[in-house]
Design a binder for these strands. Sequence first.
DNA 1: ATGAACTATGTAAAGGTTTACAGTGACCGA
DNA 2: TCGGTCACTGTAAACCTTTACATAGTTCAT
Lengths: 340, 340
Amino acid sequence: MLQQKLATIEDVAAMAGVSIATVSRAINEPTKVADATRRKVTDAIARTGYTTNAMARSLRMRRSNMILILAPDVGDPNFSNILVGLETEASKRGYGLLIGNTQNDPSRETDYLRFISSNQADGLILFTGHLPFGLGQSLTDARLPPMVAVNEPVLGQDIPFVGVDNFEGARIAAEHLISQGHRRIAFVGRAPNREINRLREDGYRAALGGAGIGIDPRLIIDGDGTTESGRAAAELMFVRDALPTAFLCVNDATAMGVIIALNARRYDLPRQFSVMGFDDISFASFITPSLTTMKQPRHRMGEAAMELLLTLLAGEKPKSREVLLRAELILRNSVTRPPG
Amino acid sequence: MLQQKLATIEDVAAMAGVSIATVSRAINEPTKVADATRRKVTDAIARTGYTTNAMARSLRMRRSNMILILAPDVGDPNFSNILVGLETEASKRGYGLLIGNTQNDPSRETDYLRFISSNQADGLILFTGHLPFGLGQSLTDARLPPMVAVNEPVLGQDIPFVGVDNFEGARIAAEHLISQGHRRIAFVGRAPNREINRLREDGYRAALGGAGIGIDPRLIIDGDGTTESGRAAAELMFVRDALPTAFLCVNDATAMGVIIALNARRYDLPRQFSVMGFDDISFASFITPSLTTMKQPRHRMGEAAMELLLTLLAGEKPKSREVLLRAELILRNSVTRPPG
DNA sequence: ATGAACTATGTAAAGGTTTACAGTGACCGA
DNA sequence: TCGGTCACTGTAAACCTTTACATAGTTCAT
């Protein structure tokens, strides 16, 4: 498996009968070399099968054209679809993607920073909602590497951010339920220390406030966004005996838990209860009843985040350091008018 | 955003009062330097905040400690979970992962090969089931880069492979249905030119043959593995009026389509029809009825593939160039004894 | 006392680019 | 004729490591 020796710029130069500087220019600034010379070089490149050694180039230029992606779980479809958008934009601009799966493990976060400090990556995309451990305190004063948070903002730090407008999205969702005639609307998935959950809850409150509906604290249930938490939340409502006519859930996974619990209790959905989610995960359309939800423009989110990062990397001033995309209302079968 | 100049090995050497060679050795072969010297070096490293420049190192050593992953769609949960396994093993061994999302676009495949030819990646993991366009013919004679196919083998080429034993898995699935008393078992998702589909169909045939059940060609339906194809296949069975008592589907997405079609026709599942899938995708447990299926050990698959690749990369002889992992039968509610 | 064997360190080359600077003609206007 | 401008090309330094080879000092058997 020994590397056979590859052609270098010197081989090309020798074959074309020019200096290596000219070869380099022919490749990188074609207008600066005479037509005849350029042809000789192009020809020699084809004959030798030369490709620029990226390591040498990166060493000299002090940049790698690589972007490090730090995500807690690449397997999560919520992330992986954004990843596709990131990749689309990056590869269009000649950048490569390095993935770091941290599993929320601080030591793994620190570990992956070596790619930044060793010049193996020029910038950083952060899915984690917090600065990687090791950047947190030690570099508050020093220079942070160019980075953009996506999906979840970094709290208490002025880090450029691309995400969905969670407040607005949740408000639209709640307003949709209200427009169907619901007035007793539960919010499932309260978690004040999670930024996303907090914003969605705020949107819910804003919609109810705007419609002159009072907030019943018994209808706001804690949850961590898992299917299991949705199931538990629904059960809790029955125990408390304070039932809503509709459930607005912090995300689709939670909504699935609610639906499973209601189905298990043999309720007829959506006739007896309406349920809404948020995210539009791939199987939202396949459960029964199919889930009315807010769709996140994940692909576009990835593209926008990469675009922002590359703008920063180029040293240009971005139009805005915060990009909020609108979630889209997807009408399916889990919402209807309340009974009675 | 200008890079502030980072400490180099020379700065460390100067501070420690030794030569750069000694610093390098203190880092890479600690046993070869005297204790006292090593301490001085470690100290200087800490004081300067030195980290070795990966580009310079890669240039000199002619390897990057990077692996290129070529996948048609990183957003597909089927892939992304394997990706997590790949990452686990790679990062454990000090390797980084470069992701290439090809969307089955030959030009993107070719494009990503530049990472290999420019020394930016040492090896290749192939999800695509075929050699990247550009390696196909031109390098049949020349040397192929070290690579391992995962999930789907590369046909007609002797490429090391790690995947699930599809034949055996499908056989186990079919035998489970037979053990429940089914004898009219449909296979949904025939696609002779897709290796995976072909193997699963073969496993199905083997199980039926082993139980002395004749193959009814009307019960074998084409399908491309999508939910929609499953739905269409079920409808087709009703048109043909050749109904099975159980559907063995080539994958879970197909099985979901079948279930949706049967639910829509108001059948009572699993009483009237049993349905099995293959894969155990994340929402297999959430549809109604929850899906009995064969679970793919995706995480382990990723780990095994990376382990094999790194073995090859180290120039060692692997135990085997083909690793087939067993799929596990997951019992849920979509299978029961046939009616009557 | 001598040379061998070993340990610890240093010197310098090599890895393959990009680019500042210098150089060479050709052309042109005065 | 001369100086200046322009278009093109070459020379050599710099980017930061790793490592073959050389050197110096120590230990030890003879």
